[in-house]
Simulated scan of single mutants.
Amino acid sequence: MAQTEMNVTLMAHTQTTWQLDSEWDKYKYSDGQAVALSAIRTCYSPNKPSEIVAKEGGKYFGKSATDGEDGTDADRLMRMIVRSGHTSTLEHLSFTFAIEGVSRALLSQLTRHRVGFSFSVQSQRYVKFGSENKSGGMDYVMPDSVKGHPDAEDTFRQFMKEAQDYYDCLREDGISSEDARAVLPNATATNLVLTGNLRALLDFYGKRRKGRGGQHEITELAEALRREVTAAEPWTDAFFEEA
C-alpha cells in the first residue's frame, strides 16, 4: 500500500496511411490537420475525401490565414469550424491515453463524460488488492487539500491503513475480492486506458478546466490531457484555450 500520483501518457493518436507526392513535403501540416481538412472540406467540396489534400491542400496549407490571425488558411478554416459549432468534423481525430494513479472518486466523475469517450478500467473484481497479493495492497490518492496539513495527513493515512486491514481480514475470512472491495474508499487508486475524439476532449476540457469549479484532481487531469494532445497536434492548443 502506498500513496501515488497521477501519470498521463498519450499512447496513440490519429495517423494517416495515404502516400502523397514528394511535392507535399514543402507544406507543413500534421496528420491530424490532414484528416481534419479532409473531413471539413468533404462537407462543402465536389472533390472526393481521398482527393481533398492532394487537390486543395495547397490552397489551405500553402497560404497564410486570410482572417488576419496566425497560421495557414487551414488554421483559419479550422477556427471557423470550431467557432461556428460544426465540431462533428473533429470527431475523426482520436487520442488514446494511459491514465495511472488516479482515485476512484475521479473515475466516477470522468465516466460521466460518456459521449465520444471509451474506457477500459482496472477491475477491483479481478485484481486482488490484499497486502500479500501481487498488487501489494491498494495504492491511494491523497486529496490536494489534505496535503501540507500534518494532522489531516496522519488521519488520512490511518484511515487508508485501516481500510487495507479490513480488506485483508475479509479476504482471510474467505470473502471474494468482488465483495471485499466494498470497504475500499474513494481514494483507492486505479488505472485506465481512455480513448477520446477531439470534440469530446475539448468538451471535457471546457467543463473541467481550472477555474470552472471542478475538484482539483480532475482539473489536473484536464490539463494533463490538454498537454498530451497539444504536444502531438500543436494546432489544437488555441481550441483548448477557447473551450
Rank of each mutant, 00 (worst) to 15 (best):
H92Q: 13
H92D: 08
L93N: 05
S94H: 15
F95I: 00
F95W: 07
V102G: 02
Q109T: 06
Q109Y: 10
L110T: 05
H113T: 06
R114S: 14
G116A: 11
S118T: 15
S120R: 07
Q122N: 10
Q124V: 05
R125C: 11
R125I: 03
K128R: 13
F129M: 10
G130L: 04
E132Q: 08
N133Q: 13
D139G: 13
Y140H: 14
V141N: 03
D144C: 12
S145P: 01
V146P: 01
K147Y: 10
H149V: 15
P150M: 12
P150Y: 11
D151N: 10
E153M: 05
D154V: 11
T155V: 14
M160L: 12
E162C: 11
Q164L: 02
D165G: 08
Y166M: 15
Y167K: 06
D168A: 11
L170D: 02
D173S: 14
G174I: 03
E178K: 02
D179T: 08
A182H: 11
A182S: 14
P185T: 03
N186Y: 13
A187I: 01
V193A: 09
L194A: 09
T195P: 00
T195E: 00
L201I: 12
Y205T: 03
Y205P: 00
R208N: 02
Q215A: 09
H216Q: 12
E217K: 00
I218V: 13
E220I: 07
L221S: 00
L221P: 01
